[in-house]
Design a protein around this nucleic acid. Structure first.
Length: 568
RNA sequence: CGGGGCAUGGCUCAGUUUGGUAGAGCACCUGGCUUGGGACCAGGGGGUCGCAGGUUCGAAUCCUGCUGCUCCGACCA
């Protein structure tokens, strides 16, 4: 490719709308342009990188026994109503109607379509296992699209669905995908961790997220400092903390004026924060009130609460709802709430001794509350968020909290969709059974963004070789110097013949401009053709990542560059 | 959905407070000069100031409504 023909408009200045490096750099380097909030056009450079990522995915999916198909983006509402997810997805789904008033949506995912496809065609266990996948656009009407390709409303995803005759088969399919994902992200050159995760709205039992480590990531993960345990904090099981044993003192009510927050209460009562109990009230999608109590220095893990009560969604409770249950906002207590109110007490709170909690009266708190003695009938669950330094549930060593970008997820779905949509087969004994399913996604466009988050510097992107749009930028320093241009053309042809993807910067620009653009776009290797190359047969090669300079001759530059690339 | 902010040429922004008929840098076109890290000189093109109303002799500027973008929040009672 010649730079004079390449449509890659680079920007000197940072567009005002972009915040994080990947978004800024993709705009500046001429990879993407925005069409609407969370919707982007991929320009030639981005498209090349995306196709490389897709190709790596295809190779590994095919190697694992997957077959590629293409399902519709526009999907009929009937299937979604049949599975019950027309409502579950709700506002997050783009819905539309045809001229006859029939309802459709733009697919946020494809479980319904594929289950429908398979239920009509698969009859026998002899046809299993079956692994089908596609690489395609997905649509989700995010509350707040942001960070460029990181959280778009239209994005590219690879999704594979596995169908097995039994759990053992699902375990094998799951393992195949888990291993394939590890290979894919390794080949893309990313630093990542598979982490245990919550299964969320998609449903299912067992799931891992593949998370690219990056400070700009939106998901928080807990990583053990000793063993290989890693989990999304939403999922991470917190261990129960036991305080030192104390004699239980009698419950006592105390006036605590103007102490609506934990900080003010402990300040007023002169108690350590570990002696306080914090209340958070939610309402589920049916407006049912759920009161949650955690230790003052802990945070409520909403996902755990949701799972504990089987809610579809949670929001902060209205004042009215709290009052109706006998609670007082700011001074809520498990003691004295109206009978029938759902109360969840975190397992660690249950072990506390002589703690302080609200008294369900304005400006009043209890001290010396002993949950086991005083709280009565309550639901005891692990509902707190794992924090830095908490014990690893596997080996007990302290965990670290770090951030990452979720680039892939593998799920064991079981029979959730096959039973809802009655997708069955006949087993060896002629018995009708629901198909055992798994689903496995990779955010392709997000993976590209994640790579940039991990590999960039103040000058631009630094692509891992495997997913770089071009491997080599060939830069003649002076476009008007015939000898330089002639040599550059010769090397251009030579590199192409050697199977190296090369971009020749033949633009009539000054050297500085071409160097800046090469750095910004992030070609792994730059070959400079200047006076040294023409007069001394010294072909200068610069490695983008390290800044290292190497010189080759017309005789050996092909092998030399190949050897350099092999290391990137 | 709640709360901020913004909307002026392709990009980054000034001008709005105090109304008087639109500007800078970058980018683009022409010519010259220059060529190892985003040059320079000269000339030039391009904007109904987001949209719709209103006030006024006169509106980018004041008022009303709308739209879009963006940031924060929507768990810590």
């Amino acid at each position: 490719m010649r730079a004079s023909k390449l449509y890659a408009p680079t920007l000197r200045e940072v567009p005002a709308e972009a915040e994080i490096p990947s978004h800024q750099l993709m705009l500046r380097a001429g990879f993407i342009r925005k069409a609407a909030g969370g919707v982007y056009t991929y320009l030639p450079l981005a498209w090349r990188t995306l196709r490389k990522i897709e190709q790596i995915i295809r190779e590994e999916m095919d190697a694992a026994g997957g077959q590629e198909i293409a399902m519709p983006i526009m999907q009929p509402s009937e299937l979604w109503k049949e599975s019950g997810r027309w409502e579950v997805f709700g506002e997050e789904m783009f819905k539309l109607k045809d001229r006859h008033g029939r309802e459709f949506c733009l697919g946020p995912t494809h479980e319904e379509i594929i289950t429908d496809l398979v239920r009509n065609e698969v009859r026998s266990y002899k046809q299993l296992p079956l692994l089908l996948y596609q690489i395609q656009n997905k649509y989700r009407d995010e509350i707040r699209p942001r960070f460029g390709l990181m959280r778009g409303r239209e994005f590219i995803m690879k999704d594979l669905y596995s169908f097995d005759k039994d759990e053992a088969g699902l375990d094998i399919s799951y393992k195949k995908m888990y291993d394939a994902y590890t290979k894919i992200f390794s080949r893309c050159g990313l630093v990542f961790r598979p982490v245990e995760a919550d299964s969320g709205a998609i449903g299912g039992s067992n799931t891992h997220e593949f998370t690219a480590l990056a400070q700009t990531g939106e998901s928080e993960i807990a990583v053990c400092t000793k063993c290989d345990y890693a989990a999304n904090v939403e999922k991470a099981e917190s261990t129960v903390l036991y305080p030192e044993d104390e004699t239980e003192l009698p419950l006592e009510k105390k006036a605590t004026p103007n102490t609506k927050t934990i900080e003010t209460v402990i300040e007023y009562l002169q108690l350590p924060i570990e002696k306080s109990i914090k209340a958070v009230a939610f309402q589920d999608e049916k407006d049912k009130l759920i009161c949650v109590f955690v230790r003052g220095d802990h945070e409520v893990n909403e996902v755990k609460v949701q799972n504990a009560v089987g809610a579809i969604s949670l929001r902060m409770a209205d004042k009215e709802a709290i009052l109706a249950a006998g609670g007082v906002p700011g001074f809520m207590s498990p003691i004295g709430l109206r009978k029938g109110t759902v109360v969840i007490v975190d397992a660690t709170v249950m072990e506390m001794k002589n703690a302080c909690c609200g008294a369900n009266e304005v400006d009043m708190h209890y001290i010396n509350a002993n949950p086991k003695r005083d709280f009565g009938e309550v639901l005891v669950k692990d509902v707190r968020l794992m924090q830095k330094g908490d014990a690893c549930p596997h080996c007990g060593a302290p965990v670290q909290i770090t951030r990452g970008i979720e680039i892939g997820q593998v799920f064991k779905l079981g029979i959730k969709y096959s039973s809802a949509l009655r997708a069955t087969f006949l087993d060896e004994n002629g018995r009708e059974k629901p198909l055992i399913m798994g689903c496995y996604g990779i955010g392709v466009s997000r993976t590209m963004a994640a790579a940039i988050e991990q590999y960039h510097d103040e000058n631009g992107i630094i692509w891992p070789r495997a997913i770089a749009p071009y491997e080599v930028a060939l830069v003649p320093v002076n476009a008007k110097n015939e000898a330089q241009m002639k040599l550059a053309e010769k090397i251009y042809a030579g590199l192409q013949q050697a199977g190296i993807e090369v971009l020749l910067d033949d633009r009539k620009e000054r050297a500085g401009v071409k160097f800046k653009d090469a750095d910004l776009i992030g070609y792994p290797v730059r070959v400079t053709i200047g006076p040294k190359a023409v007069e001394e047969d010294k072909i200068e090669v610069k490695v983008r990542k390290t800044g290292e300079l190497v010189y080759f001759t017309e005789e050996n530059y092909e092998e030399g560059i190949k050897a350099l690339l092999a290391k990137l």
